[in-house]
Amino acid sequence: MKYVAELKAKIREKLPELDVVIGWKQGFDPVHASPAFMTTPEEIEQLVVNPLCVQNLATYLPGLKGKKVGIVARECDTRSIGELLQESLIEREELTVFSVKCPGAVDLVKLRQQVGDLGRVRSISFDGPRVTVETPDESSSLDLGELLPGKCRVMAYDEPVLADFRFVDPDQDTVCREEADTDLVALEQMDLDERFAYWRGHLDRCIRCYACRNVCPMCVCQDQCIADTRDPHWLSAETDVRQKWMFQLIHAMHLAGRCTECGECERACPMDIPILTIRRKLNREIHELFGYTSGMDVDAVPPLLTFQPEEKSITEREW
């Protein structure tokens, strides 16, 4: 991205006031970027911003509370930061947000479906909407739009929720877009038995690695998570699908009205289970019931922490 030199210069300028700046750097192979924790000017040189920078770095912020932290964030990532601020899980004065115009994102599952084994990729390069992938056998030119994760297709963010410094590339359009939520639409076209079978089939593959929980920026209970405690004993060690299902419902319900749809849970899932769909459904219902979208307003009151004596949108059953 054209603004990267400018971004690095600004981070270099601000670094003396900060304990750490979180960004991305090249990962262990050409197709992976990994989070970078920059504390020295040399480490700032490793910073990259490209569509392989898929991690929502806001996940690290609650664990760094009390330190002066800088964070490189795309527009959608700032929504998670907004939600964390709203819940007082982080402090605004400790935070410096370097907001970057999102260069788009690559869903590695979709890339794998296009080019095969990602371990064979020798290089990947980006030129606007074109993605060129080189393997020992062939060079393929792909459309970035086709490789976007699901979350980039259902909600578009032109501007960040909050930013201290903003870096944009004037030539570049917003990549994310607001289309029909195809996963949810497909699910809602099924009848109840098919939906039940869909989830039973998908959730049975869950290995309860808890990657979805650990990567979630809003899952801040850590060692206090009720999925791990023996008292109360919500989940047993059985490998039964009901335990896995219950775990996903614990995660989803604890995110109700809080989930910022960053999609990290689904990205981190080693079994590619479409768990974001449950959270999206809850968000749709919350929007319909309470007209509320999480993370967009730092001063808003979360809908489940307040009430109206007469709820306009809730029709109670008469017996």
Binding site: E194, R195, F196, A197, Y198, W199, T277, I278, L282, L289
Partner: peptide, 13 residues
């Protein structure tokens, strides 16, 4: 009310 509205998505009436 929110929990009730989630049920059909999971395959429960």
């Amino acid at each position: 009310e929110l929990a009730k509205r989630l049920l059909p998505t999971l395959g429960f009436d």
